[in-house]
Design a protein around this nucleic acid. Structure first.
Lengths: 182, 182
DNA sequence: GGGGCGCTATGTCGGACCGATATATGTCGG
DNA sequence: CCGACATATATCGGTCCGACATAGCGCCCC
């Protein structure tokens, strides 16, 4: 799942600028399983345009910088379907928090507690965004399926964390001052 | 959570070669939230050694290539704890399957069914690995917490997929021959 | 009223990381 | 007997992220 495909997928649902693609990938209903940065979106769009898979038009705005609005072309739609039909990449899940949690016994209890609370807040926020996305009026059936899947998983993640984080915090070191205590 | 920290975390629990670090990160009990490739492990180990955070010794074996066994140094342990105490990176979840699922309505039903079945198999395998990891005899409390967290989430993911994948497959296109049907 | 911050908007650049490939060798199955 | 696979180290091209550069406008607070 490269950035090219991500851009095509967003443009498939409607025109957008590079900036909007970024925002949708980070804050949108699907931000829990796709994401891309400016540093890869803009070059990807430029390359897609040079290949004729997207087209662009400039739009002046007063008070704001000029926008470069991209549209997907028929060739782009074909290429997108082709890309979806080709073998997929692997799923990626990387969690710095879980790596941290594995070594909670090395770290002061206050730090473990702070991190666990931060992580819970992040999970709750993500869960809220996905739950809210289900309220979208014009939601196609595929999007609804994906959102429900995400909501089911996030719901459990949040609940497990909420009910078990105290166990993890108790594993943190009680006396952070003694260095050779372990 | 860079590859350097990942290497230190594995060496913290015992000596290993670059090859073994790779295998642990891909097949081990924590492979569901950490992973790294050879292309980043070997350079990372070389750099860690030049900085004195790990040391290495060569071990001849007959029938197999010479191994280069790495050990973490006291300075390496300090640096590891330091790194865990520093602000963490964001969690990453990228799912090509969910992007595919969002556009199931564009794709032939047989393809959707095949992909859903493949994905279910992958999820079941991952779930099995984590569930099995709980049986490990010498399991410290932190690892147990992390594994249980993963098991809870993977259990729900697998079950949701198993009970709802038919709904997704039904959203696939029934007649893949008509191109202009959409 | 002015200074700083944040938002919209495009884009570049260094560095991190993946995936494929190269190299060498030994085992095991067909 | 040959290819596939496992062990083991290492490099390289290309992708992608994160930080930075640029720039005009609105908003808030002092």
């Amino acid at each position: 799942m490269n950035v090219r495909t991500l851009c095509l997928s967003i443009l498939h649902d409607g025109d957008a600028t590079g900036y909007e693609i970024r925002r949708l990938s980070v804050e949108g209903e699907c931000s829990y399983f796709v994401e891309a940065s400016f540093g890869s979106i803009y070059p990807a769009l430029a390359r897609l345009e040079s290949e004729g898979l997207v087209s662009s038009r400039l739009e002046q705005q007063d008070g704001k910088p000029t926008k470069k609005i991209y549209s997907i072309t028929p060739a782009g739609r074909d290429a997108f379907v082709q890309e979806l039909s080709a073998p997929m990449g692997e799923e990626v899940f990387r969690s710095p928090f879980l790596l941290f949690a594995r070594f909670a016994h090395l770290l002061p209890r206050e730090l473990v507690a702070a991190r666990a609370n931060d992580y819970l807040a992040v999970r709750q926020e993500k869960h809220r965004i996905v739950a809210e996305a289900m309220e979208t009026p014009s939601l196609n059936a595929c999007d609804a399926w994906v959102i429900n899947y995400g909501r089911a998983i996030m719901g459990v993640a949040e609940e497990y964390l909420r009910t078990h984080m105290d166990d993890l915090i108790k594993l943190g070191r009680a006396e952070p001052n003694k260095d050779a205590a372990e």
